[in-house]
Nucleic acid binder design. Structure first.
Length: 472
RNA sequence: GGCCCUAUCGUCUAAUGGUUAGGACAGGAGCUUUUCAAGCUCUAAAUCGGGGUUCGAUUCCCCGUAGGGUCACCA
């Protein structure tokens, strides 16, 4: 009984999906989403996901692009179960092409050399004998679609028996590889009828089709290299993380029906529903991608984030030139400050470059007058408050040193003396910057010794500034 | 132009034959440990147009309109 059920289960056609890019350009967001949806669909059904490099156009295909596709998929964490390259399969295509010709389902057509066309047009090509009928197919996303194939005529399926073209190889390979679900871009809808015709000639089963809406550029045209489509590796170089890209791309054209927006791969495999994919195309919005990336960054294990952040800070010229002490421990303490201020890893570099991190690694640089709160007339207030804070904090033990305990000591005093009057010089003494995290956070990150040292340095500046300037 | 697809805030989208048409990003205003940032609160912002069907349509149908895709010996 159990065996019978198992056998039944096994005999059920498994889901096989494929991603079939042509290596004629870099792997960008449009292709990526197609790959992701195909991959997720396969994984939802414990199926197989195939990568098939469609390089029948020898002239336009480049190894460089193929490598970019494979590298991108790898970085993005979309593993394939099989990889095939059509340029390796010429013999297979030839066999079936010859069979089709023998069956008179295709024929060698001789035509006169036409002038005008730049490329060499063959005088002999293989054409498909079009039965000229109406073809109807069901699309998982769009429902039934009907075409009259008459207007297609006897279309070309190969330049010669060893040079098949797209429509033929797609159909044959999908058949031979057992592809059950063809998930691809909407731009292939109009290719589907002729491919179904070829399927019928080949006695191949018709796969289930799902045509995805297009990923659009800002002008609503199909995303392409010309229209701001950047290679996915660009996003890696810009400091985005794979899970964020995955998350964002799935949200473009699909949603879970709830207000949940942040997903990891496992969550997507659980929630994704191909039939709920949008029909209309969507514009790729980098602003939202940045936000999603930030959300993912915040959810990263703290150590993992710190490791990467440390790498980035340490590799900057500024860190090297100024011999910053970029210790793991220090970066981990800095992490919350960073996470509040960045959306991508590259923003860390930007912070370093705009000198927003200097004071964490070296003495703050500023003029004494900056310590003065805007409503004070001179530095006497700042000097008084800094003196109080220094004395109070000196009494706090290293073990108890943290943001909350520092605040507990300073806050009542600031309330009494005026928050701005007290907190501004305090913060400035620690950072030397107009803009920085609040003084309590800074004190915790800097540690007791460094905090007290900076307070004392500020106090010295105050008293120096109070003295009349001696002319040299 | 033929064929095909699509149509809700600026963008991504939810909803359903009956809702004050909801959320998110971006925008604006405010609050907070009187700077930044983050966070929180509030706010502005949409059913392409016209006909039907219906007691009632954003939703169903038709016609327009707009956008997109595709019309290769590219994929």
């Amino acid at each position: 009984m159990i065996r019978a059920i198992k056998a039944l289960f096994k005999s059920k056609p498994k889901v096989v999906t494929r991603f079939a890019p042509s290596p004629t350009g870099y792997f960008h967001a449009g292709s990526y989403r197609t790959a992701v949806f195909s991959y997720i669909y396969a994984k939802q059904h414990e199926g197989k996901f195939i990568l098939r490099i469609e390089d029948t156009d020898r002239a336009r295909s480049k190894k460089e692009y193929e490598e970019n596709i494979v590298e991108s998929l790898q970085w993005l964490g979309i593993p394939y179960d099989e990889i095939h390259r059509q340029s390796d399969r010429t013999d297979i295509y030839r066999e079936h092409l010859e069979r089709l010709i023998a069956e008179d389902k295709a024929y060698v057509s001789k035509e006169e050399a036409k002038e005008g066309g730049e490329g060499e047009r063959r005088t002999e090509v293989i054409r498909f004998r079009n039965p000229n009928k109406k073809v109807r197919f069901h699309d998982l996303i769009r429902g039934d679609i009907e075409f009259d194939t008459t207007e297609l005529g006897d279309f070309v399926i190969a330049k010669s028996v060893t040079e098949p073209i797209f429509h033929f190889v797609v159909v044959l390979d999908d058949y031979l590889m057992g592809v059950t679900h063809v998930i691809r871009g909407e731009d292939h809808i109009s290719n589907t009828p002729r491919q179904i015709l070829i399927q019928e000639a080949l006695n191949a089963p018709e796969p289930i089709y799902a045509h995805l809406p297009l990923v659009l550029a800002h002008d609503r045209s199909k995303l392409s290299k010309r229209h701001g489509a950047k290679p996915m590796t660009h996003y890696r170089d810009q400091g985005y993380i794979p899970s964020a890209l995955l998350n964002y791309m799935c949200l473009l054209g699909w949603n879970p029906g709830t207000t949940e927006e942040i997903f990891d791969l496992a969550g997507l495999i659980k929630a994704f529903d191909l039939s709920k994919v949008q029909k209309g195309g969507g514009i790729f919005n980098e602003e939202k991608l940045r936000w999603v990336n930030k959300e993912h960054l915040k959810r990263l294990p703290r150590q993992e984030f710190a490791k990467k952040a440390r790498e980035i800070v340490g590799s900057t010229d500024r860190a090297k030139d100024l011999k910053w002490d970029v210790s793991e421990e220090k970066i981990e303490r800095l992490a919350p400050v960073l996470l509040d201020r960045i959306e991508t890893y590259n923003d860390i570099k930007t912070m370093v470059e705009s000198l927003d991190l200097d004071y964490f690694f070296g003495d703050p640089v500023y003029d004494a007058i900056s310590l003065k709160w805007k409503t004070d007339s001179d530095l006497s207030g700042a000097e008084k408050h800094l003196g109080f804070i220094r004395t109070a904090l000196k009494g706090l033990s290293d073990a108890k040193w943290n943001e909350a305990s520092v605040k507990a000591l300073v806050w009542p005093y600031a309330e009494a003396e005026g928050r701005g009057q007290v907190l501004w010089p305090f913060r400035f003494a620690l950072s030397g910057k107009d803009k920085s995290p609040n003084p309590f956070t800074l004190a915790e990150i800097l540690g007791k010794a460094e905090t007290v040292k900076r307070l004392e340095a500020a106090l010295t500046k105050c008293s120096l500034a109070a003295k009349p300037v001696e002319t040299a």
